[in-house]
């Protein structure tokens, strides 16, 4: 038996991967924040654009929000394309 379990161990079984992925996703979707998220991210993005516009002229598409959800923590990545400094007259 130990011989077989040794050969079998090489890579994790895909069924376990499936279960893990579902547990992470469903824990997130069942929570109250899961449903609300669809609404808060666009608003967050609008607020970020508005805040930056107070100081720098940027377009609606110059802010890029990315998210990566994990089981322990999630990360939010926000990239802002700033216009080149020094050309403000035309355009």
């Amino acid at each position: 038996m130990s011989l077989f379990s040794f050969t079998r161990k090489k890579q994790p079984k895909s069924a376990q991967t499936a279960k893990d992925r579902l547990q992470i996703l469903l824990a997130h979707e069942r929570s109250s924040s899961g449903a609300a998220e669809a609404d808060y991210l666009p608003m967050l993005q609008r607020d970020i654009v508005a805040a930056i516009r107070k100081y720098v002229p940027i377009g609606d598409t110059d802010v890029d929000v990315r998210m990566e959800r994990g089981d322990q923590m999630s990360s939010l990545e926000i990239n802002i394309d700033l216009p080149r400094i020094g050309k403000s007259k035309d355009s």
């Binding site: 992925r21 992470i24 996703l25 669809a38 991210l41 666009p42 993005q45 609606d60 598409t61 929000v65 990315r66 998210m67 990566e68 959800r69 994990g70 999630s74």
Partner: peptide, 18 residues
């Protein structure tokens, strides 16, 4: 890519995201 969804097709249609 289920952990990376931020905005979706409907957000785009409704103008909430580019």
């Amino acid at each position: 890519c289920e952990r990376r969804v931020v905005f979706d097709f409907i957000n785009v249609i409704q103008g909430d995201a580019k």
